[in-house]
């Protein structure tokens, strides 16, 4: 599905310099926008988040130090603003992911590809035992990520939800309809598991010239013809057909 003409080329000097000057905040912003725009959960960038968490901690200490040593209140408040902006971005990023996990947890759990995209904390959040209050734990979970204290062991989303559904509804239904995953015992597959809709149309922008993108499974012949993307131009396109390009970071969603 992906184009053959866009195999890994060696970055030019310009690209290299652009890479050097791109801050982690910029990278996180990109990840945040893509995550918000994508229907399914994307890969969690462990390195990026841990780098940023470190920087945030460092900055918090600096601000603390400055405020006690009576530094210039103006620059102090500016540092605080910068810190707040970064924290907002990080929290929002994690929150978007949690929302997706809460919505599609059964599907994510049984799809290895998606399961491997979660961070360790998110995996714990999805499967481990804990309290039944989802939101409290969701909050603790990203609090623990943001402040990097792993003492909050997170919860058992899936089990809790299952238990809740069973107790409140399923156990009262006729025998054949008691599965969380299936409509009835004769269903061939798990047709009661909410899945992200990959045929959602998303807005995207490519960084480079891409050709040979296949807009898949159209009924008419001209649908299967290959599609080209110019750099910097916005396209509305079916998420399914650009999925591998989003995953490889060639296309940004926005």
């Amino acid at each position: 599905m992906a184009s053959s003409s866009m195999d890994g080329s060696i970055p030019t000097m310009d690209e290299f310099e652009a890479l050097l000057s791109t801050t982690d905040v910029e990278l996180l912003k990109r990840a945040w926008r893509s995550e918000k725009a994508s229907p399914e959960i994307l890969r969690y960038d462990t390195d990026l988040v841990s780098r940023l968490t470190e920087q945030i901690q460092l900055m918090e200490e600096t601000v603390e130090e400055k405020s006690t040593s009576g530094a210039d209140p103006l620059s102090l408040s500016l540092y605080q603003m910068d810190l707040d902006r970064t924290l907002f971005l990080l929290r929002s990023y994690l929150r978007v992911r949690i929302q997706k996990i809460e919505k599609y947890m059964f599907h994510i759990r049984k799809t290895d590809e998606l399961w491997n995209r979660l961070s360790k904390g998110e995996k714990d959040f999805t499967s481990r035992k804990g309290s039944s209050n989802l939101h409290a734990y969701a909050y603790r979970y990203y609090a623990s990520l943001v402040f990097e204290s792993n003492e909050f062991s997170c919860c058992r989303c899936i089990e809790d939800l299952k238990q809740h559904l069973e107790e409140s509804v399923l156990s009262k239904l006729p025998e054949n309809y008691q599965s969380v995953e299936k409509q009835s015992v004769i269903s061939e597959e798990d047709d009661m598991v909410p899945e992200p809709r990959l045929d959602t149309f998303v807005l995207c922008r490519s960084k480079e010239y891409l050709s040979g993108i296949q807009l898949e499974d159209g009924p008419v012949d001209d649908r299967s013809k290959l599609f080209e993307m110019e750099p910097g131009v916005l396209y509305f396109i079916c998420y399914k057909s650009i999925k591998p390009l989003v995953e490889s970071g060639k296309i940004d969603l926005l």
Binding site: F201, F227, V233
Partner: peptide
């Protein structure tokens, strides 16, 4: 199946997004 949008600004795109999508 795909819409190319040239030179539309962020706010404009955001307004039409729900409808087009």
């Amino acid at each position: 199946i795909a819409v190319k949008i040239k030179n539309l600004s962020a706010m404009e795109v955001n307004i039409v997004r729900p409808f087009i999508g």
